[in-house]
Design a protein around this nucleic acid. Structure first.
Lengths: 241, 241
DNA sequence: ATCAACGCCGTACGACGTACGCAACTAGAA
DNA sequence: TTCTAGTTGCGTACGTCGTACGGCGTTGAT
């Protein structure tokens, strides 16, 4: 009855090295770093088995000795970037300050690796259980220990990550929009203006028109706006009742 | 200096029908419905130009008379699902109730179309400016009119959507996890248990272990949890200061 | 009636993920 | 030390993808 794709184990469940046989010429870290480099420089679509293999100087099919599917590559990449978080040895005691700092780091991280939102939504959350992600999660849990119960803390982690991802994604979309509008063919600029203008002039969306014309889509101070949003979210989790 | 992919106009900037020539045999709505049907039944990866064309009974390359790139297809799909929101003629006057209701609808919507998170993160936000999305945005702006200024309202929309998407995504991931663990090969179950067990037993992540063992990843009442999260977010936007 | 613009689509090309099979090698068992 | 099973590395090949190109037949403004 239930037709199931034959059950794929995650990469974290397999040992990095086999007990028998010659030692591999590469490591997971090296492969992840190569894939991240490719994605940073040429976009996530450039991360193909062929390109990554070439990047580490191996044959295409040799990669399958390290990852059993391309999806494993994505898992490796996400965990590798999680390793860029600079975590103190222990939480400071001010949980709000700690979480705000992590949010700042997260924003910078996604700015450095703009492919992260796409990569993460491509994989189920339980596939992102690599060592670096676990270390990050553990730190957050430690930071709110005694203030929030575990279930609430896990919700907060999810929401905080979601906020960071969606905020930076809209930041990047805006940058992309102005880049298209300003830098290149005035054709696009004309089309955009025509469409947006017709939308605004149609009178069917007056409030949206007002918001756009008031610059609602381009925040004057992104840093302050981000801080305000994160603080609002943290407010919402303050254990008052 | 700036090497740019030659500036792609969005589908919303092109008229659906040309002024000259014979009338097309299909419509954007029909194509979007076919693509959504394919994604619902066989997953987002089944939405290929060939499959969609076959679904509407056309040759593959005929699709390019309606969309100039596959990405346009995604834009059509997302806007089509936005059309499933049931919006009252006017806001009720209770902005929190209205937004909570929209969040509920959104959750149901993503449950009906589990490919939506992937589809939406695949496209920049400004590409999702179709008529249905605009109608939704306009309704939210109307609901908070007089309570929040436009810029804050736009932030709230983004955050609310982000919350709905990430919450349902984690819900779906959990369902997937238990499906894998229970339904199919005990091999996966064994691997998962072994890895999670080794993680928990390693002692390096004590708080994460506690959260997992306490069932922190599987909420007992998803509906109530969702309501609580949305209300927390709305609390955070209450115009107190 | 004319003809440029447009709808339709068959063919073809390069890139993708990956199943399969073979050669070289290496570490534990004998 | 010798044997051998298990691993690593990789070339080839298949099916699928997005889509550039060009040739038709149809249409609507002139």
């Amino acid at each position: 009855m239930c037709e199931v794709p034959p059950a794929e184990p995650l990469i974290w469940m397999r040992p990095e090295r086999a007990s028998r046989g010659p030692k591999p010429a590469h490591s997971r870290d090296e492969i992840a770093a190569a894939a991240v480099r490719l994605a940073d420089e040429h976009g996530l679509d450039a991360v193909s088995m062929r390109n990554v293999a070439a990047e580490i100087g191996a044959g295409t099919m040799s990669l399958y000795n390290y990852v059993s599917r391309k999806e494993d590559l994505i898992d490796l990449m996400v965990d590798a970037t999680s390793g860029e978080y600079r975590l103190a040895d222990a939480p400071s005691g001010d949980w709000r300050a700690d979480l705000l700092g992590l949010a700042h780091q997260g924003r910078a991280l996604v700015h450095r690796h703009p492919w992260l939102p796409r990569a993460m939504t491509q994989r189920p959350t339980f596939a992102l259980l690599g060592p670096n992600t676990l270390r990050y999660t553990e730190f957050v849990l430690a930071a709110v220990d005694g203030i929030l119960d575990d279930a609430t803390a896990m919700e907060l982690i999810g929401l905080l990550n979601g906020l960071v991802l969606s905020y930076v994604q809209s930041e990047l979309a805006q940058a992309e929009a102005v880049r298209q509008a300003g830098g290149s063919a005035a054709e696009v600029q004309a089309g955009m203006a025509a469409y947006l203008g017709s939308v605004l002039a149609s009178g069917r969306y007056p409030r949206f028109a007002r918001a756009v014309l008031a610059g609602g889509t381009a925040s004057p101070d992104p840093d302050a706006t981000f801080d305000r949003l994160v603080n609002r979210l943290l407010d919402a989790f303050r254990p008052a009742p």
